[in-house]
Design a protein around this nucleic acid. Sequence first.
DNA 1: TACGCTCATGTCAGGTACTGACATCACCGT
DNA 2: ACGGTGATGTCAGTACCTGACATGAGCGTA
Lengths: 186, 186
Amino acid sequence: MVRWKPGARERLQAAALERFAAVGFDGTTVAEIAATAGLTERTFFRHFGDKREVLFAGQDEFESLFLQGIEAATGDDPIAIVASALESAAAFFPEERRSWSRARQHVIDADPGLQERELLKLSGLSGAMTDALQRRGLDPTPAALAAETGVTVFRVGFTTWIAEGEERTFVAILRAVLAELRALLA
Amino acid sequence: MVRWKPGARERLQAAALERFAAVGFDGTTVAEIAATAGLTERTFFRHFGDKREVLFAGQDEFESLFLQGIEAATGDDPIAIVASALESAAAFFPEERRSWSRARQHVIDADPGLQERELLKLSGLSGAMTDALQRRGLDPTPAALAAETGVTVFRVGFTTWIAEGEERTFVAILRAVLAELRALLA
DNA sequence: TACGCTCATGTCAGGTACTGACATCACCGT
DNA sequence: ACGGTGATGTCAGTACCTGACATGAGCGTA
């Protein structure tokens, strides 16, 4: 007799996304999510710091892809390094994940609280990239600008990627957006 | 006999900033803020949508300065238009406000929840600028990129402006940061 | 086998943020 | 004098989140 079914965390995430999509973030209580997953509210809060966080778990791997891309880059041009980071991060968004990403983003776009959390995560990413760029010898301001620019390109690219009818791969879109930004500031 | 003292909203804001600075955002209850202002918790929530919002009131005027700058700009170059918006917005941060801005930012930097709210506000600003740029005839992607870039320059500039020992005016710093970004992407 | 430790989960009590409904009553115009 | 307005108060209730303690299957070890 097993005392608990495995994968509690994953069950909670799946239950949460399903309920949020069905009745909205505000229309769902943590107790409901937990019950759907066969657990209690208290256990939910052991796995996730707060109700919003259930949609943002696994952000660490995402961030480390960016950092790996920075470390793998050659040369000193900040934008080239950021481009390498973007190429690396694109691996986190294969074609199979596109419709799932769309659904998740739809939930986030419907709730300001979730948008806040997403922005905080992206801000953290920007900070981590800034640090990584400084470790490569860039001065603080260029490092911050390059990192913020990288995140901007990511966001614009991501929005494009999950737009209805868009068929290019994520990495192709990222390259196009970066080229567009270069042209803009040339 | 007056039933209520005027300026309830301002008293709440002052009380909140004072308490947050003294014992932190989490260490302060809304009931305490209200009591300090001679009001009740319920009244606090009539003036501010939530506990965090008390630090972000008046953001509308700030945003409209950006939009006025966009409307006042001449020519079609997106970055030139954004530069005009930044020049206009700088008026919101005269020298007298520098140390107050520093104190407020110190409170925000100490609490992730407040950082989230700040990011959401900046995101809203970016969206409003994007719309304004599109109304001037820019295509969506260049408009979004230019707006995001403008906000990035603002953020980097603001951080610089409130740094200890910094003496340049805000507008001078903004010009320098924008020039630096141009050089980076040239 | 028996013992004891670990650790994910459950249970319970409580604090705080936030909301809806209704009451109050100075002020203001008529 | 009188009725409407509107900012505030009061009260009850829900949901988020936390700390403290209990439970018991699984596992290592004697």
